[in-house]
Design a protein around this nucleic acid. Structure first.
Lengths: 173, 173
DNA sequence: CGGATTATGTCAACATGGCTGACGTAACGA
DNA sequence: TCGTTACGTCAGCCATGTTGACATAATCCG
């Protein structure tokens, strides 16, 4: 029989492992964005607004062009969501000091509060997943995710400082 | 000073770690879908078509309703992409044997070939990431991703059969 | 100074892929 | 026979991405 499943076949196992990886990304990402999407739609906002709010909150005073290169969307796409966030007072802007053409963005108190709620949701989900998977698994998760993304984006993450963990497996203690 | 960053603060570190997790998911997922999206648009297809092609390829003979509950979209949304895939001969359908109301879906040769190209791209990206991260990291990645997704979706994945790895760290060998 | 470049914005149009609501048909099953 | 199920369609709306064209103000540089 030529049926590849009838005998142990490393190539088949490899394919299966990789397909599972594809699906892990799909299902986990979907769940990760699920509740924030619901919270946002109650405010008349969408996922695009979330991304803007997130990165402005992450880097207060970010310029529009930096935000554009972080998000990798067109200025027209950004404009649509950003002007809504400005109009509805989730975000404030001020001109750059050195370069007065720039509009530096920061969250308003209202924006801070929304960001907190959204990020809190995702932090809790992640914290639970991290806790149940264990510190070592988190380290592996981080390694794999960094290797999936492209080099430019990888540069956004500080090199890992791995503090010796209390429960470090195989430790001599 | 009340500045939380001026002293070692476990809560601050925790927040930073979790925010990095949020960003790992965002940037990795974006990269993961980037090239397939380009390949699809050359065929006049989009990411929604990819998901249909992927899951039909994964489970040949899947019914429309099973596909719907896998994708968690409405039948109207699915209909749009599925009928295009049928019309353009990426997918064939046949009536169910036991239940003739069902339309069981499978990839045509043309669909198999497209699925192969798309999945090949993502498999290669994942395989490289897995290789560079190492087997132990892959195990951690899997654990974390399974814990991020909801229980229903987790049930799609077989319980992990962890074969003793050759390079198992801390092993007595 | 004056011209090129940069940072940002606007208007218009289009594509994709979600959604809801309403309605239709054929097959199954008690 | 009748209710339910497994589909399907039409119509319209919304969010969010795209391209192209054009505008304004600030900066930079020869």
């Amino acid at each position: 029989m030529a049926d590849v499943t009838t005998r142990i076949n490393p190539l088949f196992l490899r394919d299966e492992e990789l397909r599972q990886g594809i699906e892990l990304l799909y299902f986990a990402y979907r769940e990760f964005t699920n509740e924030p999407d619901e919270m946002l739609s109650q405010q008349g906002l969408g996922r695009a607004h979330h991304r803007v709010i997130y990165f402005v909150g992450r880097q207060p005073g970010i310029s529009v062009s930096d935000l554009l290169s972080t998000l990798r969307i067109t200025k027209q796409s950004l404009s649509r969501v950003l002007s809504q966030l400005l109009k509805e007072d989730f975000i404030h802007q001020r001109p750059g000091l050195r370069d007065r053409r720039q509009r530096l963005l920061e969250l308003s108190p209202k924006g801070v509060e929304l960001e907190r709620q959204l990020t809190e949701n995702q932090r809790k989900l992640l914290a639970r997943a991290y806790r149940e998977a264990g510190a070592e698994a988190v380290e592996g998760f981080r390694k794999v995710m960094l290797n999936i993304m492209n080099e430019d984006d990888r540069g956004r993450f500080p090199a890992q400082t791995t503090p010796p963990l209390p429960g470090w497996r195989g430790g001599a203690s």
